[in-house]
Write a protein that binds this DNA or RNA. Sequence first.
DNA 1: CGTTAACTTGACGGCCCTCAAGAGAGGTGG
DNA 2: CCACCTCTCTTGAGGGCCGTCAAGTTAACG
Lengths: 241, 241
Amino acid sequence: MKEGNILNQLKVVCSLCSLRELCLPIGFGPAELQQLDVLTGSKRHVKRGEYLYRTGMPFASIYAIRGGFFKTSILHEDGREHVTGFHMMGDIMGLDAISTDMHGCDAVALEYSEICEIPFERLSELSMTMPVLRHNLHKVMSREIAFDHEVMLMLGKMRAEERLAAFLLNLSQRFSARGYSAASFQLRMTREEIGSYLGLKLETVSRIFSKFQDEGLIAVQKKLIELKDENGLKRLLGSLA
Amino acid sequence: MKEGNILNQLKVVCSLCSLRELCLPIGFGPAELQQLDVLTGSKRHVKRGEYLYRTGMPFASIYAIRGGFFKTSILHEDGREHVTGFHMMGDIMGLDAISTDMHGCDAVALEYSEICEIPFERLSELSMTMPVLRHNLHKVMSREIAFDHEVMLMLGKMRAEERLAAFLLNLSQRFSARGYSAASFQLRMTREEIGSYLGLKLETVSRIFSKFQDEGLIAVQKKLIELKDENGLKRLLGSLA
DNA sequence: CGTTAACTTGACGGCCCTCAAGAGAGGTGG
DNA sequence: CCACCTCTCTTGAGGGCCGTCAAGTTAACG
């Protein structure tokens, strides 16, 4: 992996939700903008712990996050879950459901969140006449594929410390891209959920957080994370390659 | 994970490449079909070991496999590679490059292969006027996302034996869906490539193949695999859940 | 027939999981 | 307001799975 390949992975704030603003400078007329407004009309609030959708539910819309924090996960019969992703403002969820017309995972809000429901059929139709919209849709889907490949790399090749470092740096960049601090942020998820996402156990996550703190790389206070030595974390990742 | 969720994952033979046939029963006229032929006109042969594309190359086309076998992988500076996928007839490659306009992985033919190069910009334009094409494109991309999530689950949660069992069953189903034998097939990749894909070392892959053979689950003769007890393999997977 | 790549098998060790106990934080009801 | 409960997190001890290292075998190819 090229240095910073994973690091530079971030789901840019280019959500279809905010496409109105995105399209303005491109020279859209009022008519097109009005069409977009039809799409972005349906907003919903989701309380902490509530499901936005569940596995097996029929697929009709994709969801753009206006604010808040979600996890998506697959649930097993025995109750174990695997977290497939964490999602924040500007991210699009539900793209994996198009192929089967049924949601293939659960989406749970980890804090109070606002989402924007986008009927996919209408979006698809609208993308006929709006090349920019079409291009953006393809980019969003493609970015998810490319990002998932990075995650696969992480799960398949990295050791626990490298995974945690990559995870923290990715979070940092995504917060930073959204105007929040890159060096200090609140984790919205538990150690167990982090572990599930990274293919580790919660004890391992906790231990490595402590280790990073001892080494002066980060400061941890429960869910408050402060990156003290970003380059140090990046060096950890570099050792993979 | 629901029983057979991973098992049922298979990239259906619905490649855009064979869309001509696919669209016929839907009632396309000669004009539309001619448009499609423009897309599928550019065919290429790739010899064993040749690269179809490499990381960093500018993105212009996606590729539908007409025949043969590919692996896609990310290469590290130190020479180590992580295999992100194996691809056979009917699969589409290169979808991860749309977001960056640059290929993010290497695609290597593991045997003599024939592919069909599809200029993405033209495909995208064409999808404006052809809803079926548009829908198929979205489905193909969505299926890749959903499948990658299954792989992430495998890498994050399964033990070595479970990964191998899932791998063999997935291969079996994909061969079967293409008209080949589900119970007996030739591996196109080395143990090392399998290991890289599954997050294991080649010795582990070899050991587990031997173990499966001792247990009567499969018969192995180098690259020739015969599934002797498909249900036994599925039971291995079931124990995950 | 010689060379090399790919595979198999064994011994050993390390990383992470498992099991366990305890501490801290947050919420609820008295 | 405080006691109490529960969820989450931390830390330790021990064990198991798989990686590492090594040697030998087989297959493929010129």
